[in-house]
Amino acid sequence: MGYVLTTKQANEIFAELSTQYRLFAPKTFGNEGRYSDTGCVRYGEVTCVEDITFDKKSEYSFKEAILPVMQTLFYFTEREVTEPKVDDKKTMIFLRSCDIHAVKRLDEMYYKNGPKDYYYSLLRDNVKFVLIGCEQSFENCFCVSMGTNTTDHYDFSFCKAHDTYEINLKNTEFISLFEKVNASVMEVKVPFVTENDVKVQIPDGLKAKVTSSTIWDEYDSRCIACGRCNFVCPTCTCFTMQDMYYTDNGKVGERRRVWASCMVDGFTDVAGGGSYRKNYGQRMRFKLLHKVYDFKQRNGFHMCIGCGRCDDVCPEYISFSNCINKLPEALKEVDQL
């Protein structure tokens, strides 16, 4: 079922939704780019359609709405442990097709990889997903190669078409929302990308032996191990724990989990002083093969969704997709060993 909304109608719907949901969408943070006089598109809470940035890819992904950078798990005093209050409002996330595929990866990790993760469920269980269509591919996108360019898994779509907004409704629970504002009913087709400039070909016969290739070595010097690629990635799920004791009373505090990056120093530190993958090229190897090889071995589909955010953000202009395309060469090399 489809609707077309005027801006006024769309904002009436946003107002209505805001009573029950916190709306997360890509928005422009005007002065918050790394460089002076630059902005940054990333996820934040929105209250009206004008807040949403439709025409750019967000530098950071939607994942921080359900997998916060820092999540307090509980507060502890000497005798008691209390959980933080969870917002009564549900969450609605505006995101693109590739990112909806990323949700599947996050769910795989936190719902299915061992017991269901309680803290993830707290935020994730009641999330609604609103699809933003893609009129065209952005720079560095390779969703078509990864098969993430189309999706049916959304509650409704919300696409900007000149001065109107087009809705394709999947979840009938929201029918009244659109009927209430007298939205004009119309057949609406969600735009999906069918071709990207960047294409990758993950070799069929990829095997673990490829770890011993020399293709990783160039990243020893090119990579600076900053971790930007992990933090912008919608499918990176690693975290570390922090027990923080309040300074005025060292016996009380909180336990948090915080994003961790396999590219950043300290990720592999273990008790006794051990640390692994000290070379940055080996970190690149570990990350890349996790995204396009061993995750699939376990779960049946690739972890990487081809959003290209890692390429967009890398200050050293290292391209993940370019590295994927070196795999056939790497395979050939290790086969000769």
């Binding site: 002065n31 900053c226 933090f231």
Partner: peptide
């Protein structure tokens, strides 16, 4: 100098609105 902003991989540090 803004080195903290430039090097922060997660935009925890940002620049002041005022110059």
């Amino acid at each position: 100098c803004g080195e903290c902003v430039l090097n922060c991989p997660n935009m925890a540090w940002t620049r002041s609105e005022e110059k």
